[in-house]
């Protein structure tokens, strides 16, 4: 059926924002920041893209604005977590609320109407394709950067033991903040793809939890860019499959829930779990302890 080609292309379209967000999540976690504000970063990216395209008539400027918006949001997380000692999860939750409230509020301020923006100039089919390709190129590039460049080495070290990074004469705060900046840019592009690539409007709640699916993809991808992109692609295919199976009577909610259910399964480690970076989510001045340690260590002694 020609719908197979349609399925593949729909999968790619559905996967692309997830790939961007998952790469953003990976780079943050490798540097030791558990970025739950990805959802917010996608949201502000999608909104900024449409707002700027609306104001200037240029979707390219819109894309640019999305990058800046994503950077602003994620860098706030990085700065709050490294300079002000705010707990990463708390800060991430705050930023998500901030993004949701700010964009809903912005819709009224910029477009004078709540709920959704009017149609604006979008990136078009060419732009959409370019971003799809860019997402997968970014995965390879990021993998190479992480594995082979000095910055990549510092990021990896920072996610494992920031104190060692400091002893080596590198400021781990800077490393973590730059990681959030890179992540913000990626997530911003992901957001712009949602509003200006796939569609030509912004509407409240359009990110629909993709930032959280991305976190699941990071775990599935075992904290590597290529793995995360692969997982994001699989999740994209799942959501494309939803349109096919819906006609067969499978509830769409079940299909939508699959990535989240899969993420829960990943947390059990039954499907095989790699070790998370030791200092993932750990503030800079604390010695990292493995997340799994608590559960393992507290095994009641029965001898055997």
């Amino acid at each position: 059926m020609d719908s197979f080609a349609g399925f593949v292309s729909l999968s790619l379209v559905k996967a692309t924002p997830l790939v961007f967000a998952a790469l953003a999540g990976t780079i943050c976690e490798r540097a030791g920041i558990l970025n739950i504000a990805l959802e917010g970063a996608l949201t502000v990216g999608a909104f900024a893209a449409v707002a700027v395209s609306f104001a200037t008539g240029s979707p390219v400027l819109g894309l640019f604005a999305a990058v800046l918006a994503g950077i602003a949001l994620c860098a706030l997380l990085g700065i709050a977590a490294t300079r002000f000692g705010v707990d990463q999860i708390v800060a991430g939750t705050g930023l998500n609320l901030l993004a949701a409230g700010g964009t809903a509020f912005g819709l009224v301020v910029v477009f004078g109407q709540p709920g959704a923006s009017p149609e604006v100039h979008a990136l078009g089919a060419g732009g959409e394709k370019a971003l799809i390709v860019a997402a997968f190129v970014a995965a390879f590039v990021l993998q190479a950067v992480l594995d082979r460049t000095p910055w990549g080495l510092r990021v990896r070290a920072c996610g494992e033991n920031p104190r060692a990074v400091r002893s080596a004469g590198v400021d781990p705060r800077r490393v973590r903040v730059t990681a959030t900046v890179v992540a913000g840019a990626l997530a911003g592009i992901g957001g712009a793809f949602l509003s200006l690539g796939e569609l030509d409007i912004y509407s409240d709640g359009m990110t629909a939890g993709r930032g959280f699916i991305a976190l699941a993809a990071v775990i599935f991808g075992r904290w590597t860019p290529l793995g995360a992109a692969g997982a994001a692609l699989a999740f994209g295919a799942l959501s494309a499959l939803q349109f096919v199976l819906q006609r067969a009577g499978v509830p769409s909610e079940l299909m939508q829930a699959l990535p989240y259910l899969a993420a829960l399964a990943a947390l059990t480690g039954i499907v095989g779990r790699a070790r998370a970076p030791a200092a993932d989510g750990v503030p800079l001045d604390e010695r990292p302890a493995h997340i799994g340690r608590m559960a393992k260590g507290s095994v009641e002694n029965r001898g055997d």
């Binding site: 558990l34 999860i89 699941a216 259910l261 829960l264 947390l267 340690r293």
Partner: peptide, 15 residues
């Protein structure tokens, strides 16, 4: 399983 409860609860919200 020692699974991170942040991720788990985020996922459970959506489910």
């Amino acid at each position: 399983f020692g699974g991170n409860e942040v991720i788990a609860t985020l996922m459970l919200n959506i489910i």
